[in-house]
């Protein structure tokens, strides 16, 4: 079984969270890595190409960043955020991009089932949580999104660069005021991120047939995170569109 690195950084700053994900993407020698994290303060992240003006409630979050992945805005509060980083030719990411989403989302569904959640891919049906004009990721669904209770409950996106892939996503544990009526685990025991993370880890290990070793980011990854992190909150980047 392949050995992956597991990095857990709860209650980290938005700058560190985005900077470390960039470091994991851009450090070719980084081993395949699974990362779990949460945010302090609560943060709204814009998609890479999103217009700031298209997210009317962006300023209501504790902080704002722009991600290097695409898609809509996410309010990172009461959620578990994860990222996966590995070479793009890794079996998890080989083939069509859609197929890699399906593999990762089915793994998350296994973890959700442990809490009694029957999650499946949205497919061609419409969701109650689909809404126009908010700019929020959870209000815009695609066939590969994971849904339960007829609402979208996991938002995820990829960045592919120089032969590597960064895949990050959010699993909603409770409702947030900026996202409203979406699928969460509120009705399923409302686990804290610290309770959901080990269950999700077991699902990744069993479904992907991997082992993991807990680790801290390497010094060079921390340095990259520190150098590039501030840029994610800079007005110039935040309002580039």
């Amino acid at each position: 079984m392949e050995l992956w690195r597991l990095i857990t950084t709860f209650e980290a700053s938005p700058e560190f969270n985005m900077g470390l994900d960039q470091a994991l993407l851009e450090t070719p020698e980084s081993p395949p890595t699974l990362r779990f994290y949460t945010w302090s303060p609560d943060t709204l992240s814009l998609g890479y190409f999103q217009r700031f003006a298209d997210v009317p409630r962006a300023a209501e979050a504790g902080a704002q960043v722009r991600r290097i992945t695409g898609g809509g805005a996410i309010h990172h509060v009461d959620e578990l955020t994860f990222s996966l980083a590995c070479p793009v030719d890794h079996p998890l990411y080989q083939g069509p991009i859609g197929a890699s989403y399906e593999r990762v989302h089915r793994t998350i569904a296994v973890a959700l089932a442990r809490f009694g959640v029957k999650a499946d891919l949205r497919g061609e049906r419409a969701l109650v949580s689909d809404r126009a004009d908010t700019g929020m990721c959870f209000h815009h669904s695609t066939p590969l999104d994971l849904a339960w209770d007829e609402r979208k409950g996991v938002g995820s996106a990829q960045r592919r660069k120089d032969g590597r892939v960064l895949h990050h996503g959010s699993i909603k544990l409770r409702n947030s005021p900026l996202e409203g009526d979406i699928a969460t685990l509120e009705r399923y025991g409302a686990p804290a991120p610290e309770e959901f993370a080990p269950v999700l880890l077991e699902a990744f290990k069993s479904e992907l047939a991997i082992r993991t070793r807990p680790a801290a980011p390497e010094i060079d990854e921390r340095e990259i995170a520190t150098v590039v992190g501030a840029g994610y909150r800079a007005e110039k980047f935040l309002r580039r569109r």
Partner: peptide
């Protein structure tokens, strides 16, 4: 899709733009 401004000098292999599909941003 973002493309560069004319006048930009590119080395071979250098990123000149980015494209987003529903699920991934790629160089």
């Amino acid at each position: 899709c973002d493309l560069p401004e004319p006048g930009r000098e590119l080395a071979q292999g250098e990123t000149f733009g980015e494209i987003e599909s529903v699920k991934a941003v790629s160089d």
